[in-house]
Design a binder for these strands. Structure first.
Lengths: 337, 337
DNA sequence: ACGTGAAATGTGATCGTACACATCACACGT
DNA sequence: ACGTGTGATGTGTACGATCACATTTCACGT
């Protein structure tokens, strides 16, 4: 009674119904020229009528092209990586590519290797690594991955292309802003040690502090969360030997401000706080957050552009940098004298 | 000099090097029983040595199983959908499935159809729709999509499985909380009209208000952003005929609070504000936000579980609901008399 | 020593498409 | 009338794996 799963129509079914050879149908699908317009129409009608969809697996098998780009991201719901990911997906789609995403819950070597293996089994034609952690590069080398690779938010490396917001410059701008306001004791709340962008922001901070001949405490290693920022804020208050904090992202800055206010301190009156990223909520925090804006969507789009260029065999400049922008709001002010 | 792209090793290459037939290699790959342990080891060694990776396209072609789940999400960087997505990816991976994600930048019919077509061409075995918009269902019906489907954050429908946080219950809890505090004039700032979860939250709000025999203004349709919340907050202040606002998400609540404070009002002293979602930053807003928590990761995981169960042919209950939880913080208080 | 059944391994066909090449139809110049 | 070039269409084969079935190996009871 119930018909067993009817096989999906294939190219030969279409051909038969349209009264042409399967090759003619194939030509229509790949819109080759030298197809008479009338037959083309006839074939297209049959395709629409029977709901034929080309089988990508068969196509990939014979062309050995998957038209797929693999994306390795970290398993976080952060605004930046997510925004970049969506931009990547959109740019790839427009170029006729599709995205296979896989995310990294932990940063141990085995997990990274496993995720990369996973992508390679998909026979992705290129790889985008978002918010890469240092160890990712070891794994890539070990697996002898040969497809084109673009990394985001990374510092320069020589063996692959990268596209990054100039994190170091951004961190210097944030730090400079605090110094220009008159702050001399500035604390840096960094991201996790194995994140390349955390490292870059820390580097920028340290360089700027150094250039201004200031001393500073060793940066505190955080985990990007507001909870952690809150926790660090409370700890910092036990010493009170600072007048400003530069947090490596907006969420941690929010947590810091929360802790400071709970302790009766005024931001920016007693302590100035700068964040990083300019997430959409930052303008609505209390006080509105001074931060460094990066255009996540832009780097997502451009990373796909770079990758596609490499796939087409065009060799462009290997390392691109996007300049971030300092957004001054209300969370920073000159130190109280 | 430079060797042309060497063909990747295939199953026959492995077989030859291991001195067995390709079928034996295939058996090792699919770890069938009845393989002598010594030959199995030999084959595995060769596989590791030559870096052989099974070609998924070929496998999919013959088995007509792609082990891929398609995910349709909206192109937003919001915490909730993103968290669910990561959970889905992880759960699917653990079950040996992979995820093909595609996102919806606009909600017009053509775009939705295009994205669904895209997924169907991938021959996904199942479909998860995150944060669905009303029109998605029309498109699914039109395309006669026959693969198992699970939707998240949706209200009950009869023709597919769904898994949802009970948005209506959550909205009622939030509203009830305000009523219990003594508020009588409550404004609802809703999400966009075509989002099912926005609709559900609005419904919950209206029902609770109705049950309490209160009147209310027609809900304001927002776009989920803090910017919009801020804008609405300013508009609302022109009337001041309310003592509390229930925002359909935390970001809009943040924007509202910002606007109120800018106008010199105290939250919760002059106006109470409730959000929805309990994003990780909500606890650190000023004041810490009273909101409704939903476990996004949990519904992501469970949606995959439902989908896989259906793929295995198990027919379970079709609609599951997860209860949200009211988190009372400092943004709500009794109205000033 | 030999038949027998189970375990281990091998052979042919197949999935749905694209590519290379072959063929056909037809117009056109000489 | 005929060769010829070009546009339109058809035929054979390969991609790399799995499945169904065939065959070989081998231990064991009689």
């Amino acid at each position: 009674m119930e018909p067993d799963k009817v096989r999906a129509p294939n190219i030969r079914d279409v051909a038969r119904l349209a009264g042409v050879s399967y090759q003619t149908v194939s030509r229509v699908l790949n819109n080759s020229e030298s197809i008479k317009d009338t037959t083309k129409q006839r074939v297209l009608e049959v395709i629409a009528q029977v709901g034929y969809r080309p089988n990508q697996a068969a196509r990939a098998l014979v062309t050995s092209r998957t038209r797929t780009i693999g994306v390795l991201t970290s398993q976080t719901a952060h605004y930046g990586p997510t925004t970049s990911l969506h931009a990547i997906e959109e740019a790839a789609r427009e170029a006729g590519y599709l995205i296979s995403t896989t995310s990294l819950a932990t940063s141990d070597h085995a997990a990274i290797v496993d995720r990369l293996e996973h992508l390679m089994r998909q026979a992705v034609e290129g790889l985008v690594v978002i918010a890469p952690q240092v160890r990712v590069f070891d794994a890539i080398r070990q697996l002898e991955i040969s497809v084109p690779l673009v990394t985001l938010d990374s510092t320069r490396r020589d063996d692959h292309r990268s596209l990054s917001v100039d994190q170091i410059a951004g961190a210097r701008m944030a730090t400079r802003h605090l110094i220009d306001l008159g702050h001399r004791e500035i604390v840096h709340l960094s991201g996790p040690q194995d994140w390349i962008e955390a490292e870059a922001r820390m580097t920028g901070f340290l360089r700027e502090v150094d250039d201004a001949d200031l001393t500073t405490h060793p940066p505190i290693l955080g985990d990007w969360t507001a909870d952690f920022g809150h926790h660090v804020g409370r700890e910092l208050l036990r010493y009170r030997d600072f007048t400003a904090v530069f947090a490596a992202n907006d969420q941690m800055a929010l947590g810091l401000i929360h802790a400071f206010r709970d302790a009766g301190l005024d931001v920016p009156g007693d302590v100035s706080v700068v964040g990083f990223d300019d997430i959409p909520e930052a303008a609505h925090y209390w006080p509105p957050l001074t931060t460094v804006r990066q255009d996540f969507a832009e780097i997502g789009r451009r990373s796909v552009g770079m990758l596609l260029a490499e796939l087409r065999g065009e060799v462009e400049s290997s390392h691109e940098q996007v300049r971030p922008e300092l957004i001054v709001r209300k969370s920073t002010a000159p130190p109280r004298i």
